[in-house]
Computed example of a mutant assay.
Amino acid sequence: MFKKTLKATALLSSLAIMVGMAKPINVDAATTYVMATGSVNVRTGASTKYKSIDKLKKGKVAKVLSSKNGWYRVQLSGNETGWSSKKYLTTTNATVKSNVNVRTGASKKYRVVDKLSKGEKVKVLSSSGDWHKVQFDGDETGWSHEDYINKTSSSNSSGSSMNVAKKLTVKAYAYTGGGYTATGTKAKYGTLAVDPKVIPYGTKVYIKELDKVFTAEDCGGGIKGNKVDIYMNSQSACRNWGVRTITLQILK
């Protein structure tokens, strides 16, 4: 298996968090973004008894920092944060209508950094005029024109609409480095390294934290039993993911 695993870094990050030396890192690859379905109050705490300090206008997209008792703590402008009820917020998803360039800014004058393919799923993070800032391939972001992005809203990103055979709790690592997998495919975002005795090669696996279906097509010496390795596009994405205990949804 040709890859570069960053488990040592993940272990150091975990230890630092345990002793209070590191702050939690919010990254696009594992962050939820929500959109207001109407004018929504933002409060100082997770209840209507708390004072309203701001409002999210209908269609406004915000980053979720944490959740509690049916409420989201969201990022407002700058470093300001507050709490809004989940009842009035939906996760924001989109599908690419046709092949489209991804740029560094909200205009054709900005440099093209990637290209999205027709049918590819992305998340809309924010908007500026006729342009959307989108998240794709896990941790990558950029700007594409709204004419090529079919934006939808969904209050359910748990994969419940998929045909789930079973759920499996695993310890999930992250790796990168390119190359080819144990099954001969090119390693890419969407590749999952598994113990084939637990998850057979070719199995489709939905990972809620990344809102993406992965394919079990790689393995590794340290990936035994209920462990998986998620292919990421960069070392920074691997470090931000670290090591997590998650529940996989094994699809039929």
Rank of each mutant, 00 (worst) to 15 (best):
S144E: 08
N79K: 15
K87W: 09
K133E: 15
E80D: 13
R73D: 09
T141L: 07
T92Q: 14
L76F: 04
V124I: 12
S127V: 03
V100N: 00
S144Q: 09
E140V: 02
L125P: 08
G129N: 10
G78F: 07
E80W: 03
T91H: 10
R73M: 11
G119K: 13
V113Q: 07
D130I: 01
Y88W: 13
V96D: 01
S128F: 02
S144K: 13
T92V: 15
K121L: 10
E140Q: 14
G119Q: 08
E80H: 12
K109Y: 11
K109W: 02
V112K: 14
Y110V: 11
A94V: 07
S128W: 00
Y88N: 15
S127C: 04
T104E: 15
K97W: 06
G78E: 08
G142N: 11
T92L: 12
K133Q: 15
G142V: 05
V124F: 04
T81A: 03
G129H: 03
V124L: 02
D137E: 13
V96Y: 00
S107G: 14
T141Y: 03
N93P: 01
R103W: 04
V74W: 06
T95V: 11
D114T: 02
K87V: 08
H145F: 06
T95K: 12
G119E: 09
T141P: 01
D147I: 04
D139I: 00
S85A: 09
S77P: 03
H145D: 12
G105M: 02
V100I: 10
S127M: 09
K123E: 14
V112N: 13
T91Q: 09
T81G: 03
S85N: 13
K133H: 08
V96L: 03
Q135I: 01
S126D: 09
E140F: 02
T81Q: 10
T92K: 12
K133V: 01
S77A: 14
W143P: 04
L116T: 00
S84V: 14
W83T: 04
G105F: 03
L76K: 06
G82Q: 06
Y88P: 09
T81N: 04
V112D: 11
G142M: 09
V134C: 10
K133Y: 08
E140D: 09
R103M: 09
L116Q: 01
G138Q: 06
K108M: 07
V113R: 08
G82M: 07
G105T: 03
A94W: 01
V74Q: 08
S144T: 15
G142S: 12
V124Y: 06
D130G: 04
L125D: 08
W143A: 04
K118A: 13
S126V: 07
V134P: 05
S85L: 11
D137G: 10
R103K: 08
V113Y: 05
G105H: 05
T90C: 08
W143T: 10
F136K: 00
K118S: 15
V112C: 10
L89K: 05
S77V: 07
T92C: 09
S117L: 11
T91E: 15
K133I: 01
S98P: 00
E80S: 15
D147E: 13
N101E: 06
V112H: 07
S117F: 06
S117Y: 12
S126T: 14
T81Y: 00
K108Q: 11
H145I: 12
S117N: 13
K97S: 13
D139H: 10
H145M: 08
D147S: 15
K86G: 15
Q135R: 15
G142T: 01
G119F: 09
T91Y: 11
K115R: 14
N99C: 02
